[in-house]
């Protein structure tokens, strides 16, 4: 029979693990997106060696398993004078791993921005920084939010790999529980539930974000939800 009392006994540890998972995932996503965005921008600079380096970085990250990258960073790091705590290494590893994918997502989004929208801004005398903030990024969000949310969902599940370098996240705590109680089935069931919960929250947030950034396509105006309201206001 299933022994649910285990979840009461190990509850605090599991919740702590879940918290660490969310922290690693959230921070990893933020680093991944920030770095991915910078990589995408640098790729637009017309300096060939720079482009080659960035492309090589992306190809290496995408071409090798996350587990190996994490080992290289955590266990191989000290050989290069890089000594990281397990959790720090885990967050950084996730961020570097995600950055390659985010850079590609952003590149596609950047290229999809209609050229005319940028030319209109240029012809009005707007600076590149202003155009990036006010025209390019909002247009990019529309086309890339589904892919961004997808990548974030994938990263929730990549966090399990962090248990291997002893980051005390959910997988790690679950394995501890399994090892101490031999309750394999409960453990697997618990894990499935927790990760499903996390992915579900991410995709729900993603859908709301998508509705928010594509509001201009579905709404007549920022305030009104239909054409009628807009005409009534006017």
């Amino acid at each position: 029979m299933l022994d649910f009392a285990l979840f009461v006994q190990y509850g605090p540890a599991l919740l702590r693990g879940f918290g660490v998972t969310i922290l690693c995932w959230g921070a990893g996503c933020l680093i991944g997106m920030a770095l991915g965005f910078v990589l995408m921008l640098l790729r637009q600079v017309p300096v060939k060696p720079l482009r080659w380096i960035i492309r090589a970085y992306i190809e290496v990250i995408r071409g090798t398993p996350f587990l190996i990258q994490l080992f290289l960073l955590y266990s191989g790091g000290p050989s290069f004078g890089l000594r990281l705590e397990a959790t720090t290494a885990g967050i950084l590893g996730l961020g570097l791993y995600g950055s390659a994918y985010f850079a590609e997502i952003f590149r596609a989004g950047y290229q999809a921005v209609p050229k005319g929208q940028v030319e209109a801004a240029l012809s009005l005398g707007m600076s590149y920084g202003a155009i990036l903030r006010r025209v390019i990024v909002p247009a990019m969000l529309v086309s890339t939010i589904p892919a961004i949310v997808n990548m974030m969902a994938i990263l929730t599940k990549e966090t399990v790999v962090l248990s291997i370098i002893t980051v005390p996240e959910l997988m790690y705590e679950m394995q501890t529980m399994a090892a101490e109680t031999f309750a394999t089935f409960e453990t697997i069931l618990g894990m499935a539930l927790f990760y499903w919960l996390l992915v579900e929250v991410v995709s729900r947030l993603g859908r709301r974000l998508e509705a928010r950034v594509t509001r201009f396509l579905t709404h007549a105006s920022p305030q009104g939800s239909s054409t009628e309201t807009a005409t009534a206001r006017a």
Partner: peptide
């Protein structure tokens, strides 16, 4: 270039309004 362009307006065939702004 920006200093020059701010005195020269341009209207495009495809309007090129920014769709996310009213």
């Amino acid at each position: 270039l920006r200093d020059l362009r701010r005195n020269v307006g341009m209207v495009f065939q495809q309007f090129n309004l920014w769709p996310h702004m009213t």
